[in-house]
Simulated assay, not measured.
Amino acid sequence: MAEEMKTELTEMESLNVGDVLKGKVVKVETNQALVDVGYKYEAILPISELSALHVAQMSDELSVGDELEVKVIRIREDEDKVIVSKKAVDAERAWAELKQKFESGETLTATVADVVKGGLVVNVGVRGFIPASMVERQFVEDFSDYKGRELTLKVVELDPEKNKLILSRKAVLEEEAQKKKKEVLESLEAGQILEGTVQRLTDFGAFVDIGGVDGLVHVSELAWHRVEHPKDVLNEGDVVKVKVLKVDPENERISLSIKETQEGPWEQVARKIKAGDVVTGTVKRLVSFGAFVEVHPGVEGLVHVSQIARHHVETPADELTEGQEVQVKVLEMKPEQKRISLSIKEVEKPEARKEKEENTSSEYTTGGLNVTLGDMYPELRNLK
């Protein structure tokens, strides 16, 4: 035992710059601390050698009795002084660990020590800097509330010789988002009804977040009626129900529909209109065999040429014009086939019908020709 103590004492009789020693804090002053390292006099630990970051006063970081490792950086035997550094020991250990994490892609956690121009500062044994562009996935205007927050980070650049360490939280968030995106893509199936949040509006549609991944609702799938621009029916931030139409995991594309989650126009019209009803509609299209009349937004029924009037109609354009408002009677409803048969002549009032009959009562049909009494008896024309 005596031999061991003697050996230890002999080793401590000689110190060299670069030696790493274990010691105990015996005194804390404003700008320095005295550390017992087993040498003939206490080592001096200046405040500048305590931490990689600025320290206002020693008592903020050290207390009497604290044990720590220090590295000898200067020896002044003529002044009975040994200058040691704690941050040098921390830095050597930190650079080794940081290099390993950089190569393996591992993450580390650190508390934000300060908010500076251009980003955040952390202490991970050495001073680490997180550029503003690497804090979040989205733009952040004010970082004041980040001080004191613990963040999970990745090493993106390190240079021990220049004492340079760049860290990123965004890289961690991107990896997490990609992992979640993959999980969501694998869980999605065509036909699912989900709730999502509108993220972006474009000329061709809306991108909706459905749990960490965005799907596209094409402008044609926004509503059953025609939509000129998505902003006419949606706002960013709106919570909407969507139906999954198609999933392409390989290309990370999801096709969604909002209108498929809503009752369609044919379902609506089936509830509101039945055979025998008389409704008001608008002539949308004229064709050789009749006219298509819109009786509900997005629903058109056919008025066959034979149902336009009680008299013979050569072409629908002789009686109707596009955009004209007309009353029609529903003859037959087949919403499952998206077909409605309509009639205009069946709506004609009895009075109007009687007037037409009276106007033609003096006409006779002979040999297939319409002949008037004046034609048959010319002499009657001169009678007064």
Rank of each mutant, 00 (worst) to 15 (best):
D277L: 03
G264D: 07
G374Q: 15
K162E: 01
V328G: 06
V247H: 05
L216R: 08
G148F: 13
P160L: 05
G38A: 02
L153I: 15
P230T: 10
K384L: 02
G191D: 00
A275P: 14
A190C: 08
F139L: 13
Q178R: 15
V233T: 11
K329Q: 02
D318C: 03
H296K: 11
F207K: 08
A223K: 14
T261S: 00
F139T: 13
N16S: 14
H54T: 15
V84T: 03
D209M: 12
E49N: 09
V115A: 03
I44M: 04
T111S: 04
E29H: 15
E358M: 13
G323N: 12
A171H: 09
G367V: 10
T152D: 08
R169D: 00
V240E: 07
A270S: 11
E250C: 02
D36A: 03
V244P: 00
E332T: 08
A94N: 15
R285M: 05
K246F: 12
P265C: 11
E348D: 11
N123W: 14
E332C: 07
V219M: 09
E332F: 12
A110M: 04
K354P: 01
H296G: 01
I344S: 04
A91T: 12
G118Q: 10
R285Q: 14
K179F: 04
V219E: 06
V115S: 07
L45N: 03
V17N: 05
V115P: 08
I166D: 00
S361W: 15
R285H: 14
E175C: 04
L108F: 08
L158C: 12
V217N: 01
K179G: 05
V112D: 00
V72W: 05
G298H: 10
Q307N: 01
S85I: 11
V28Q: 07
E49P: 09
E42H: 12
I340E: 05
L151K: 01
D318L: 09
E69M: 10
E325F: 03
K180V: 08
V35W: 05
H304R: 08
G298D: 12
L185D: 02
Q262M: 04
L320Q: 07
V213T: 06
Y364I: 13
I44T: 04
E186N: 13
K164H: 10
E157P: 13
Q324H: 07
V278T: 07
D60E: 15
